[in-house]
Simulated assay, not measured.
Amino acid sequence: MSCIVNINRFIIPNDIISTITNIYKYIGKNDIYEQTVGNDINRIIEQTVGKDCYYIARILSLDISDNRMRLIVTKNSSPRTKDETTLYRIKEVLTMIQMKHQDLTTQSNDLINIANYINPNQNIKYAYQEENKKVILKSQSMRSKRLLLDEINDISNNILAKQSFEQIILNLHFFIDFYNLKPFSEENETTAFLLLYLLLLKAEVYCFKYVSFFETLYNSYDRFEVELKNASFNWNEGFAQTLGFVRFFTKLIFDAYLNTEDLIKAYEFDQNINKSDNIENTIYKLPNIFTKEEIRAIHPLVSESTINRTLSKLRDENLIKPLGKGRSAKWIKIN
């Protein structure tokens, strides 16, 4: 049991070494990205967290309408249902991770506190694992999964302190261990996703400050599920086959950095011209019927207020008019 305990068995093949090397070339530009966006970094992270909330809600199949989701994520509307409370608190946790990830730890107490915070109506506790040993009473063979999680965490921290294994790949194996261990009585899946988010940022994979991690994951979720299932096979026996998962995930990170490069270039371009004029020009090139989402896809780092201001200006000039309301509302050009 545990990938981390057996991490020295994992041989990194040449193609993954190549991908990791390219990722580190972009990680070396993290400071340049932040210097480029300057004081807009907090606004950009807020937008990224908003997208993260929308897509993790889809991944977790939370029963929340798009309109309520928008109000909770962008307006801090008070939650009305259990699923809305979960999303509201996930947003707070994601924001905390973005802002304070280097100070946060993956200790067992911290992770169960996250689980209990997400679901305040449940007294989430550690589950137990039955060990293979001969005892008189069954209860004597039960071991708290907290102890197993602490062991995995201690080994991981020791490896990082010695710098004896590459951190991104190590952290991916930590996630696989947590996912399969299922250490809590409730909220294991949600906590696992938030742990993965934290582990990536702690490895300075800062493309996910600019590009939504959960949107990126959602777009490849079928493949993610397949690779995670394959990586979990024989996990209990200590022979998990994690190569496919690592190959998939390092490629996902590399592609996210390519998207970040494009976003930063677009941001630099927008800084050199009037942002509203640039959005107007984009609208003219869109189909006769379009949505704000299409504009955001082209200008993801432009603020919501700038997009709304441009739409209102064109509406007042009788160049466009809205079709419906809410997040999925469409606009039509007036010829």
Rank of each mutant, 00 (worst) to 15 (best):
E261Y: 06
D110E: 13
F175G: 01
F174Y: 15
T19M: 12
K29P: 00
V246K: 10
I27F: 05
I136K: 15
L201D: 02
F239A: 12
F184I: 05
E189C: 01
I27R: 14
I295P: 15
D83H: 15
V73H: 02
R247A: 15
A231P: 04
F233C: 05
L149T: 07
L170R: 07
L258Q: 15
V246S: 10
M69L: 15
F193Q: 08
K202F: 02
Q102A: 09
T21D: 14
K82H: 09
V135P: 02
P79R: 13
R247Q: 14
Q140M: 11
N8V: 02
R309H: 08
K209V: 01
D40W: 09
K285A: 12
T106S: 10
E34D: 05
Y26F: 12
G38H: 04
F165N: 08
N230L: 13
D154A: 11
I320T: 10
W235V: 08
Q47Y: 10
L196K: 05
N14G: 03
E294Q: 15
T242A: 09
N272F: 11
I307H: 05
T105C: 06
D52G: 03
D83W: 12
I136D: 14
E166W: 05
N230Y: 06
G326N: 11
G324P: 07
S303K: 14
N39T: 09
I97F: 06
V302E: 13
R223P: 00
G50M: 07
Y257D: 06
Q241P: 03
F165L: 07
R309P: 01
L200D: 04
E237Q: 12
L194H: 00
K209S: 07
S232F: 06
F165I: 02
T190W: 00
N76T: 00
E268W: 03
N259L: 14
I97T: 05
P120Y: 02
R296Y: 10
K75W: 01
K333I: 04
K162Y: 09
Q122V: 06
L147D: 12
L319T: 02
L87A: 07
L263M: 13
L94M: 13
Q47I: 05
P13N: 14
L87T: 04
D270I: 04
K134G: 02
R327G: 00
R143W: 01
S18F: 09
L258G: 08
Q167C: 01
T48F: 02
D103G: 07
D270G: 04
K75T: 02
T260E: 12
S139Q: 13
I56L: 14
I273Y: 14
V205S: 08
S139E: 14
K251I: 09
Q163R: 11
F175R: 04
L160R: 08
C53W: 09
H299N: 13
F175M: 11
E293H: 10
